[in-house]
Design a protein around this nucleic acid. Structure first.
Length: 650
RNA sequence: GCGCCCGUAGCUCAGUUGGAUAGAGCGUCUGGCUACGAACCAGAAGGUCGGGUGUUCGAGUCACCCCGGGCGCACCA
């Protein structure tokens, strides 16, 4: 409703200013710092003052008196040196909220969000969780606003990282594909954890014995050419780890629509097709001399930023004829926009507990119908900020191919890394150099096996949540306690990862990440549970919920909302859609997370001040109950959009 | 060397495309449970928004210059 009125006011002023002054200026609508100034404030007169060469206050007065009445708006007033403050009709506003708002109309076009993208060669760590949670929350926000979204999780199943683990199994451990299969099937072994250690081990081996690097080259060639036994081990490792990653992400409620795999980018001639396009359009050329002799390269002027003086072109095809990651990524990006003229074949990989289906690319023709994937009108790539350079090259590739609009709609949804605080390293028993100890944070490194594994961390949260739940609900069954604890643990984790803005490095610290008090997920969940408890109590007393629509007429709302406290609380609780829109525009799920916290804080305050069930004034009691219900529904909705469930009890 | 990001309370972070008196959590101190269960609430202390110059009605926010830190600039991804 708040969003509706914002838009209504903005449109009304824009139209009026167009008519009266023949000016087309963007109308800024903001929330006044102080509630006494009303619900909305427009600094439009300041912008007009420049163009009209008149004092802003005079223009503001003109605007406020000349503009036609706006439905839902009680009054406009001029304040300060030219602000126009807007006051809502409180009773009408509440009545509209009570009636409920229709869902937003479906937005045109499909948005593709690519996230998670973990190399399938080892267990996921907390950095991967940030990627997935950020991407997933953004997807939920888009969907909440009526966008059609397709979630892709790219699987680099034939890359160097997988090859290194394969080489570890083959050369370091002399394991056959059968041995690896047995390991995967062994319930006593966490295969992704095993690979985590093996990956660190072979990386160390390469460092001490660089001659062994030919293992990597040999493995890559074997995988590319489909030679046994290395290609088999490669498939076994990648497929098994993908399953484990999917399980880990499902613990957080993160699901995908399709997993496009690198193997199909190559086998189904995606790259070959893109290569032809790039050559034809002269986007890349064969370098004949210098350090890149024999490589197909994209010249620096295609992607360098203004002011940057690099002359280094980017290698797309190596001198040995193999394509780099960026090359494959250009082909993949073209496919996402439906520009490649080719498609994957798809196989159903799993059906999620809620019935949603996940598909994976395959090169074998499949019986039956698969859904249609790709062909988006906008693409968000959730990839950490360190890959900005590569994302720029991909975007430049599209632009150079003449796909200007698609290049503009290729959005690198960049976020900073999750690092480890020095204290966290100490707790993990990681020895730090003198130099590292002085750093604000330590970078996670898969090669060094340095990091906090996602499942370990989730388990730690679960243990702590379980302890809390047990102390509060000792008589509930262990299964029930576990399910509540799981909900709280995931709430804590998701909120923790979302409360930081994308540009902020998270220096991971167990003490902060395991907090359930203050600005945390459980705090917000607790507020929602408290609200719900009031209704439980009501039922226990044998009462039924009042018919709010019948009991709360506009005059009743007017009487209750004359209280500034109630009005402010209601106003704050009704801004979810407005906040989501702004958070989407800013690309910051953190803004929505903060809002969820504020909402919870506001409710806790309300809860403490007003004892609802014992209120003797009948109308007021009904009103308080309605407010509680409204709060509970809004809070639960916002939390759900953040991917956080509301537990039954806490 | 070049590019990008960051610097706001003791700590961790917000600060809505330049807007009205810079906010939150944690920590510290004080107070509040026989209530709809305190994973909560109320209050206090805590700031030269790294420094400087500029742009203008107005700068934490924009420009430029310094200082400090991080990340990129592979025939790795």
């Amino acid at each position: 409703m708040y969003l509706t009125l914002e838009q209504r006011v903005r449109d009304a002023f824009a139209a009026h200013i167009r008519n009266a002054y023949s000016l087309d200026i963007p109308i800024v609508v903001e929330q006044p710092r102080d509630a006494q100034f009303g619900e909305l404030a427009l600094p439009a007169a300041f912008a007009l003052a420049k163009q009209l060469r008149q004092p802003p206050r005079k223009i503001a007065s003109e605007l406020a008196s000349a503009i036609a009445p706006i439905p839902g708006i009680a009054e406009l007033e001029v304040a300060g040196n030219g602000y126009i403050n807007v006051r809502f009709d409180r009773a009408a506003y509440a009545a509209a909220l009570l009636q409920g708002e229709p869902a937003p109309p479906p937005a045109p076009g499909k948005i593709i969000v690519e996230h998670t993208n973990i190399n399938p060669n080892k267990a996921a760590h907390i950095g991967h969780l940030r990627n997935a949670v950020l991407g997933d929350a953004f997807v939920r926000m888009l969907r909440a606003r009526g966008h059609q979204v397709e979630v892709q999780n790219y699987i680099d199943n034939t890359g160097v990282q997988v090859a290194d683990v394969v080489a570890g199994f083959h050369f370091l451990e002399n394991k056959t594909p059968e041995d690896v299969s047995a390991l995967i099937a062994d319930p006593a072994v966490r295969f992704d954890y095993y690979c985590w250690d093996l990956y660190a081990r072979i990386s160390r081996h390469y460092e001490t014995d660089p001659a062994a690097l030919h293992w990597r080259a040999e493995t890559l060639h074997s995988i590319e050419e489909g030679r046994a036994p290395l290609v088999e081990i490669g498939h076994l490792v990648a497929d098994a780890i993908v399953e484990l990653h999917l399980n880990t992400m499902l613990r957080l409620g993160v699901q995908y629509d399709v997993l496009p795999r690198e193997s199909e980018i190559l086998h189904l001639q995606f790259w070959a097709t893109a290569f032809e396009l790039l050559k034809q359009r002269g986007v890349i050329h064969l370098e004949s001399e210098g350090k890149n002799a024999g490589c197909w390269v994209m010249p620096a002027e295609a992607f360098r930023e203004s002011g940057e003086d690099t002359e280094d072109s980017k290698v797309i095809v190596r001198s040995n004829g193999t394509v780099t990651y960026v090359g494959k990524d250009i082909a993949y990006q073209l496919w996402k926009f439906g520009l490649l003229g080719r498609d994957f074949r798809y196989r159903r990989l799993r059906t999620y507990p809620d019935g949603h289906e996940l598909w994976v690319s395959t090169d074998e023709p499949q019986p039956g119908l698969a859904p249609s994937f790709g062909g988006g009108s906008r693409v968000y790539n959730v990839i950490d900020v360190r890959q900005s350079y590569l994302q720029r090259v991909v975007q430049a590739g599209l632009r150079a191919l003449g796909c200007e609009r698609e290049a503009e709609n290729s959005i690198h949804f960049a976020y900073e890394m999750v690092a480890l605080s020095p204290r966290c390293c100490a707790e993990l028993g990681i020895e730090l150099s003198e130099e590292d100890r002085r750093r604000p944070y330590i970078e996670v490194s898969g090669r060094k096996g340095l990091g906090v594994k996602a499942d370990d961390f989730i388990d730690a949260l679960l243990d702590k949540a379980l302890e809390e739940v047990r102390s509060r609900h000792p008589n509930d069954s262990p299964e029930y306690q576990r399910s509540i604890a799981g909900c709280i643990a995931i709430g804590a984790l998701r909120y923790f990862l979302l409360k930081f803005t994308r540009a902020s490095v998270i220096a991971f610290d167990f003490q902060e990440a395991l907090a359930f008090e203050g600005e945390t997920g459980p705090y917000a969940q607790y507020a929602a549970v408290r609200a719900r408890n009031i209704f439980n109590k009501l039922r226990e007393r044998g009462e039924t919920l009042p018919d709010f629509a019948a009991a709360l007429s506009e005059p009743a709302f007017a009487r209750q909302l004359a209280s500034e406290d109630f009005w402010q609380v209601l106003l704050g609780a009704s801004q979810a859609d407005s906040v989501i829109e702004k958070a989407l525009a800013a690309g910051e799920p953190a803004h929505l997370a903060r809002y969820a916290f504020q909402l919870a804080q506001s409710f806790n305050n309300f809860y403490h001040q007003h004892h609802i069930l014992s209120e003797s004034d009948r109308e007021k009691r009904t009103f308080l109950l309605w407010m509680t219900q409204f709060f509970a529904s809004q809070l639960a909705r916002v939390l759900a959009i953040l991917g956080i469930d509301t537990p039954e009890v806490m």
